[in-house]
Design a protein around this nucleic acid. Structure first.
Lengths: 145, 145
DNA sequence: CCATTAGGTAAAGTGGCTTGACAATAAATG
DNA sequence: CATTTATTGTCAAGCCACTTTACCTAATGG
């Protein structure tokens, strides 16, 4: 027996990629043409505002060097600044610039737009169920070895 | 007002990544320790069996050179062979080796295992609804400009 | 036939990441 | 205190999955 109809992996991947590309598209259309796809990770919920690079890297599951590389690009593009941290002079505090706050808004609006579209397509009740189930699965552990 | 609770993007990403890492883990545990994460794309539904490199690259949305690079690794590792194509001597036909077929089975079993786990967690009826809704969203177009 | 197109691949370059090393500061310890 | 140890950010080198460019070969169509 071949795979049944498309498996859960593919089913999850497709709409997830749709979210990604829609966010990026709206960014490019709204004054953030230099916003790279990789930057989306940094701006993922709950965003970098006020965080320390090290903490943010841990939250995103990447090395601090990798994050630092992305932060360099974002700072050069004027989306954020790495300020000295008030409580620890080794550390830094990430502060979004007005442009960075604008990008956050564009992203949030893009997601809201997609959620509206999907709510229409599935119906509000079913979409709420979808959200709830995905949240439950997000807390679900993987099967053990 | 930060983002509401986690947005649909994050909700989709988490379980999708869980599927990926579970497939990879089972592969590594079952005789495919050299199976790279990147190879999962090639083995994604409906798999490379019998396909031509060009056609497969188009299906996966990558350049034929990028796919060829992955196929080189997979062939060197003994998961598949690039045979001459019977109908077109410019072309090739991808044929899974026994080892490649074994990897397909490991992947399929891993997904089935996860689906079982998630079915238990959500209940069979709700999980079926989840599948159905994800399928519907997969066919849904993005909102226009 | 010859010109054009399609299929595959080799070579070089790119971007996002890793690992390793390190200076500066903070925290823990004697 | 002084000294060790851990933490933070960063530079540097390298890796890997790509892309772009360039070709060669074989099929297709006049």
């Amino acid at each position: 027996m071949p795979f049944g109809p498309p498996m859960i992996g593919a089913l999850l991947r497709v709409p997830w990629e749709a979210v990604q590309s829609h966010m990026l598209r709206r960014l490019h259309e709204n004054g953030c043409a230099d916003f790279d796809a990789a930057y989306l990770r940094v701006f993922g919920y709950p965003g970098p505002q006020g965080a320390r690079p090290s903490e943010l890297a841990a939250r995103l599951g990447m090395s601090k060097q990798a994050l630092n590389y992305l932060l360099g690009g974002l700072e050069r593009a004027g989306y954020l600044e790495r300020q000295p941290h008030p409580d620890d002079s080794r550390s830094r505090r990430i502060a979004l610039t007005p442009r960075g706050l604008g990008a956050v808004k564009v992203i949030r609006d893009a997601v809201a737009e997609l959620e509206t579209s999907w709510t229409q397509r599935l119906g509000p009740k079913r979409f709420a169920q979808l959200r709830k189930m995905l949240q439950e699965l997000g807390r679900s552990p993987l099967p053990p070895t």
